[in-house]
Design a binder for these strands. Sequence first.
RNA 1: GGGCUUGUAGUCUAACGGUUAGGACAUUACCCUCACACGGUAAAGAAAGGAGUUCAAUUCUCCUCAGGCCCACCA
Length: 782
Amino acid sequence: MEFKSKIKQKTWEHDIELLMFEKWQEEKLYKFDKKSKKPLYSIDTPPPYVNTPIHIGHAYTYTWQDMMARSRRMLGFNVLFPMGLDKNGLPIEVMAEKIFKIVMHETPREEFILKCKKMLEEAGDASLDSFKKLGLSCNDWKIDYDIGGRYDTDDPEYRKLTQETFIELWKKGLIYEDLKPTNYCSICRTAIADAEVEYKEGKTSLNFIKFKVKETDEDILIATTRPELLCSCKIILFNPDDKRYKKLEGKTAVVPIFGHEVKIKSHPYAKLDFGSGLVMICSFGDFSDVRLLRELSIEPTYAINTNGLMNENAGEYNGLAVEDARKNIIDDLKKANLITKQDQIDNRQPVCWRSKNPIEFVALKEFYLKQVDYVNELKKISNEISFFAPESKQILFDWINSISIDWVLSRRRYYGTEVPLWYCKKCNFVYVPEPGKYYQPWKESPPIKKCPKCNGTEFRGEDRTFDTWFDSSSSEAYILGYLWDKEFFKKHLPCGMRPQGKEIVRNWLYYTVLKSFHLYNKAPFKDAWIHMHIVDEKGEKMSKSLGNVVDPQEILKKYGAEAFRIWSVLEGDITRGDIRCSFERIEGSSKFLTKLWNITRFISGFPDSEQNKLCESDKWILSELGVLIKRVRKDYEEYAFSDAANAIRNFVWNLFASHYIEMVKTRAYGEGFNEKEQEAAWHTLHIILRTVLKLLAPLTPFITDYIWGELYGKESVHLEEFPQAEWDFKLEGLTDNLIQFNTDVWKTKKDKNLSLKAEIQVEIPKDLIILEKDLKRMHNIR
RNA sequence: GGGCUUGUAGUCUAACGGUUAGGACAUUACCCUCACACGGUAAAGAAAGGAGUUCAAUUCUCCUCAGGCCCACCA
């Protein structure tokens, strides 16, 4: 029989990928059916920032999410796999400032917002092009199946949800406004987030200042870089192991110039070998002052105002800029002979990332969400989430354990969700509107005409926005249809899966847990998949400055999505460690696609016949296939796609192609076998191929669907169910000996310099005797 | 500085405390064997260092070293 393949070209050509994708889209292949009776599997995908061109890490992790979606679909779930874009907050504002050369606080709010919107519109779709090319099977609540129908976090609908959660939390009494020390830049005149703080290396003078001990009248030396804060000095600390100062425990010190008295206490924060070993804690010189005063329950005395000037607490330095106050106070201390020494030391000063101005802690009234009181409950709820990999759970717990203050919710920014509140101008009554609408209090009137308390008619709208994580931490509610069908939402919370990077465990994951606890008293998801990072070939972090950034578009263009996908899954598991990106290895992995392609070409030459009288070789490979199916199912259930891919590859290449196909080739051609035997081979070859295509479909959706269409189905392979072994053969025990026997024969022929077709005389081992007929033909055994 | 985490050939990745430490990519040699030279058959190549537990350790414990991540940070 002459070989005639149904498929002409010798390799998989990836040009066809985009056409296939468009066809899937037209057919609405992955349409989300909210009325489906199947159990729901929802994926709370991480919306990437729109302003960054999609990074190789996005390409990789979204591909894995797509594998979750596709495998769960085949396993019988109704899958909700939305795509979102994050369009709130600081990075957007910064980009707008850069592009339009404007400064946010100097631009009218309305105008600034319009500029942000304009910029986002232009950038939005470009970000999604790579996702499309990767073949992601996203779907959405509202849109049937169209990756362009993703959700945006700055959509009025989304912001409505954010505000609704705020209102609910407010009603539960979990939100309060309080005057607390906050990072503040006096040039930008705004509170700034920790993420906006930069550090500047520099020299500064460490001043050794004399204090008096009240009880003993002795002098002690305190080293400080911030003498202008003497007026706000609240306590003096020494290390518990510091023998020099043991005697000072509980005594009182008198602050020079200002004359107020403060306690002296031992505390491990004070270091033995720094300065004099005595440290004064002021309100507030840095983060640790804030932390310590809170820990020691000491009421702060603020010395600096929001305008960056010293206030009335600074006595004669009132009204001076911080720098000037420092100069003056040092002069005064010197005149009074109260400074014994000034050392020049290196230090890192926190500065505003934008103005490079030193940051001060000033008292600002901000909104807080309670969390400190609920740490144990949060841990309990977090324990209900299964982590992949399990070790990643610790990252969340470490963070929960480090929580010491409530969550500062409000920001003095423009492009974010507004805090939905109004204040009565007459009596200061706080009006909280009813949920169900998107409110913009800075430009709208409240939905009431009169103040319920004093009948006043004038209101002031709140002008602050939320921390963007306050938006993000409701993504699970958003995707589960909270806005459109509360019953559905209630029924399906917790969401099936939260996939995300480990670097945002402390905000995105944590805050979502926090809000879900407060609002629904439930864990937000069943599973959390926490990934590490893609690094370059040498294991270095990719960064623009190093010039080692890999653009996924380049890979997609050169090798295609399928090559990228099979590489991403054969290379390793990104939940267990960083993944190195190497073009060479992508090319290497893609050889498997060619192998699969050529196996298909071979099999496609034979009819897909029905046959019940299988030979023993057929039963053997089907036994192995049965083992593979079970294994892959388990791997898919546990998101171990890498393990599954390697198992499939190993089966296809090292068992099926190398041994089974070689064994039955002559039988399939009908040389020396009867028709029944020949048909048994055809039948088995097709069963295996069909099953392998189904097993691979979630990993490599293009090539499998293409082959499926050519050989088997009118309908897509992606509508198939996960395969089951409909046979019960148990011959997998033969495998090791079979491989060994074949290897030995090949080696013998090679050693004797014989062609593989040459006749040879060997003895077939006893346990393989059932395969005798195929083996004899395979090796041309006499 | 504190915490978490990881160290298997040039690279990537496996293996209940007992294996000749398996496989892949790259390398080398031989082979165009009618699905595939993006293939086949072979060859060479590995446990970071040290101590302990054990009859037995790549696997468990500790220390050192080297990465990675997170947090804090010199008053």
